Simulated assay, not measured.
Amino acid sequence: MKTQEMNIKHTDQNQEHSQPSAQAESFQTDVAEMAYYKAESRGFTPGYELEDWLEAESVFKAY
């Protein structure tokens, strides 16, 4: 019985870590939106995707 309880606890912990929190999803959505607008302002010139993403991330991490 003890092994079964340990397996259940282990499974529950894995599920907690495998699903992003609402806060993490919101952060990613906000970053993606800001990166999109940065790209749009340049006319979607290719080659700046990572730069746009990292700049947007740094803005939201500062708050």
Rank of each mutant, 00 (worst) to 15 (best):
A22M: 14
Q28F: 07
S18A: 14
T3Q: 12
H17S: 13
V59E: 07
M34A: 03
Q23E: 13
S21W: 07
E16D: 11
S41D: 15
Y63T: 13
E33N: 07
T11M: 08
W53V: 14
F44K: 04
N7Y: 02
E33D: 06
F44V: 10
S21A: 08
G43E: 01
A32Q: 08
D52A: 01
Q4F: 06
S21M: 05
A24P: 11
Y48D: 08
Q19C: 13
H10M: 15
S26L: 15
D52G: 05
F60D: 01
Y48N: 04
D12R: 11
E25K: 15
E16K: 14
Y37M: 05
N14Q: 14
Q13S: 09
Q28L: 11
W53G: 01
G47Y: 03
I8H: 01
K9N: 11
T45H: 05
F27M: 09
A62I: 09
K61R: 10
E40M: 09
K9I: 09
V59R: 03
A24M: 09
F44T: 07
E57S: 02
S18M: 14
N14T: 04
L54G: 01
Q13D: 13
E16Q: 10
I8P: 00
F60S: 04
M34V: 02
Y36R: 03
Q28T: 13
A24C: 08
E55L: 07
E25M: 12
H10E: 14
E51Q: 08
D30T: 05
Q23N: 10
M34C: 06
E57L: 03
N14Y: 12
Y36E: 02
E16W: 14
D30L: 10
S58Q: 11
T29F: 09
Q19A: 14
T11W: 10
Q28H: 13
S26Q: 10
Q23S: 12
S41M: 12
T29P: 00
M6D: 02
S18G: 03
A62K: 15
T3R: 09
T45Y: 03
Q28E: 15
T11N: 10
E51G: 03
L50C: 09
K2Q: 10
A39L: 08
I8Y: 05
D12P: 00
P20L: 06
V31D: 00
A62W: 12
Q19I: 15
S41N: 11
E40C: 08
Y48L: 09
T29M: 11
R42V: 00
S58V: 06
Q15M: 15
S21H: 12
S26H: 11
Y37R: 08
W53R: 00
H17G: 13
Q23V: 05
S26C: 13
